[in-house]
Write a protein that binds this DNA or RNA. Structure first.
Lengths: 158, 158
DNA sequence: CATTAACAGTTTACAACATGAACTATGAAA
DNA sequence: TTTCATAGTTCATGTTGTAAACTGTTAATG
């Protein structure tokens, strides 16, 4: 019996299986992204940006760049799109003329509500397909997975 | 006691938590994508395309468009990149002059091996961080999650 | 106080990813 | 033999994103 070899094969099989599972989760999320973007007729980056205004009166270009982890120049463009659609407006910061304060328009608030409603709905459906008694365990194992992903990531970047 | 209301809140909390977990998986995968692309100095779409040649002697533009689920014109561009890097070559199909047969060059084979080695390594690390006795359950719950995601997706597209 | 640093935001040029329509050329069917 | 289908390319366009150079403005420092 070649225990070592069969054990190696098992690990490789499991590694492969894990890759396929994670891939299919990612693919599914990208499909959801495409669907959302088409449903609301707004590029997805603009939707992401818009939702960051939830619970915030004012945000600056820099705030958004940090939150979205993209370059400031990207935010300039996204905000241009949102302003053209009348969802966001821009005023000067009375205390610092360098800064521009961005905030939602009434239509922006409405749009966020619509999008949030839709998002909550699909995530509720997602969780309702899982037996309530199994949810705790699902979260437990997902946390394990994420923990492992974080570890691998840190090791790579080290 | 307001059972119904607290139950609703619990569902919403769980829906929200699930969203956050899935988001962090997707983010992590995107980071891996970026890392891979930089490590090998090849755009990720070209890497994906290249790996599709694993175990295939010849592939056509159409084959690749179907496998990658993108427009043919996208494949034309990706193949241009791979040919410029000397990883893929193109010959005429002797049986049908419309068709171009794409295949790996020796360097292409080498590159695939490198990429596959790297990928297997990180996925092994990923699985090795999980207690061997818990892997079965992890897969079980991940399958449940994917099943649910598929159901929600089908309902949306219906 | 004047110069220099740092900061906020924009513009521009570029690259990667992706589609759709128009086009060329070939093969198959009527 | 005309017509239709197929394979692949080109071109125009849109989305996502970066980096560098630039304009103003504020803050720090000699």
């Amino acid at each position: 019996m070649n225990y070592e070899k069969s054990n190696k094969t098992l690990t490789e099989y499991q590694a492969h299986k894990l890759r396929e599972i994670v891939d299919s989760i990612v693919t599914c999320c990208n499909d959801k992204r495409t669907y959302t973007k088409e449903k609301f007729g707004i590029p997805y980056a603009e939707i992401t940006c818009l939702l960051l205004f939830k619970g915030e009166r004012y945000l600056t270009v820099k705030d958004l760049a940090v939150k979205m982890e993209v370059a400031k120049s990207r935010i300039t463009k996204i905000i241009k799109g949102l302003m053209a659609k009348g969802l966001v407006e821009k005023i000067e910061d009375p205390k610092d003329n360098r800064v521009k304060l961005l905030s939602l328009t009434p239509n922006g608030y409405k749009k966020i509500e619509e999008i949030e409603k839709f998002r909550l709905e699909i995530h509720k459906k997602l969780i309702n397909n899982i037996d309530p008694h199994e949810r705790g365990k699902l979260f437990y194992y997902l946390d394990k997975l994420i923990e492992s992903m974080q570890l691998v990531k840190e090791e790579l970047l080290k």
